[in-house]
């Protein structure tokens, strides 16, 4: 069952194309994140879905109903979407209670829904306040309650946490996730923060240059990026040149089994191989087994440490990033031995 389907969406502003053939499906009851760098067209996509902008081409359907298909265009007020923008956009002239009730009919206002929603987002005792009397996090919660009040087909969240400071962000995120689950609402979240996308959502759609590059669960995306660019976009990546043959990848770092799902090859072929930093192991000193290298940078994070090491010139490799236990952090200049654990992902040259 799907709540929201967008097919072949195109949108340009003047001569500048922003969306170039978006394909997107949001399953019922899921929290799906649209992840993309700034300028990738993700906010425009959300605005087109909401009906604030018209698309040039393509079909959008919400809850089985076509809301836009090039000829037909349903204005935002008839789409039944709950929109939560970046800054919350609460009506400054209305109290929390009246903000939440804004989209409701006279009858609906009296059925206790407003109080229930205020309670649900944890602001049951602040319904008489005005927006300027609330903190940033509280404002976001009110914005969410207001969006949920109209029992929307889907809630669209446009970078809702980016204006909050780091400490507040985590707790507001968790609250929003909880409330969306409790309400059983389908939600689409736009963000440029990969941590946020990977940790909060059921599905992630990565948008690149106006197109969806890949869709999947966070784990699928991290383990099976479709191409090296995608691998680098989602998390840190070491992309190493090597070769593959049947189910084995050979690199100067060693020989590894291929991940299931890698493109099978019949004869030895040169390839780009992905080794995630947490697959890299670093030991101080020189050992017989492994690659000799020297630490060039070391960032200590407490629970873990990220080091950049430069292998000896003879290996032909550039710098490698490794993530290790914080206790194992080494000072720059230290001589080390680098090894790695498989399985790895490989993209054979075409």
């Amino acid at each position: 069952m799907t709540r929201l389907v967008a097919t072949d969406l195109y949108k340009a502003f003047g001569s500048q194309s922003v969306l170039t053939g978006i394909e997107l499906t949001v399953p019922e009851g899921s929290l799906t994140a649209i992840l993309g760098p700034s300028g990738s067209g993700k906010t425009t996509l959300l605005r087109v879905l909401a009906g604030f902008e018209r698309c040039d081409r393509g079909v959008i359907s919400l809850g089985g109903r076509v809301v836009e298909d090039g000829r037909r265009y349903l204005p935002p007020e008839e789409r039944g979407i709950g929109y939560v923008p970046q800054e919350g956009a609460l009506f400054p002239h209305l109290t929390v209670e009246k903000n939440i009730a804004f989209g409701l009919s006279r009858q609906e206002r009296r059925d206790g829904r407003v109080a229930r929603l205020a309670e649900m987002v944890g602001l049951g005792n602040l319904t008489g306040r005005y927006p300027h009397q609330l903190s940033g996090g509280q404002q976001q919660r009110v914005a969410l309650a207001r969006a949920l009040a109209i029992e929307p087909e889907v809630v669209l969240l446009d970078e809702p946490f980016s204006s909050l400071d780091a400490g507040l962000r985590a707790s507001v995120r968790a609250d929003v996730q909880r409330v969306l689950r409790e309400a059983g609402t389908t939600a689409l979240l736009v963000t440029h923060d990969q941590d946020e996308a990977l940790s909060m959502s059921d599905f992630v759609a990565v948008i690149r240059d106006g197109r969806i590059g890949q869709t999947g669960t966070p784990q699928e995306l991290y383990e099976h990026p479709v191409d090296p660019d995608m691998a680098e976009f989602l998390g840190d990546a070491n992309l190493i040149r090597g070769s593959v043959d049947s189910a084995v990848a050979s690199t100067p770092l060693g020989t590894f089994p291929l991940r299931s799902g890698s493109t099978p090859v019949a004869k030895p072929t040169s390839a780009v191989i992905l080794v995630r930093p947490e697959q890299v192991e670093i030991r101080p000193g020189r050992a017989a087994h492994g690659l000799a290298a020297r630490v060039v940078e070391s960032e200590f994070h407490g629970h873990d440490a990220v080091m950049r090491v430069l292998p000896d010139a003879s290996s032909g490799l550039g710098a490698i990033v490794a993530r290790t236990d914080g206790a194992l952090a080494l000072a720059p200049g230290t001589e080390v031995t680098v090894t790695a654990r498989g399985p790895v992902l490989a993209w054979p040259d075409a």
């Binding site: 909401a50 604030f52 007020e77 956009a89 009506f91 989209g103 969006a147």
Partner: peptide, 21 residues
Amino acid sequence: PTGLEEMARALGSKPWSVLWR
């Protein structure tokens, strides 16, 4: 802010009602 007017539209208000409310 224009965002507020869009918000009101998304919440189901017609353009004239947005102007007034």
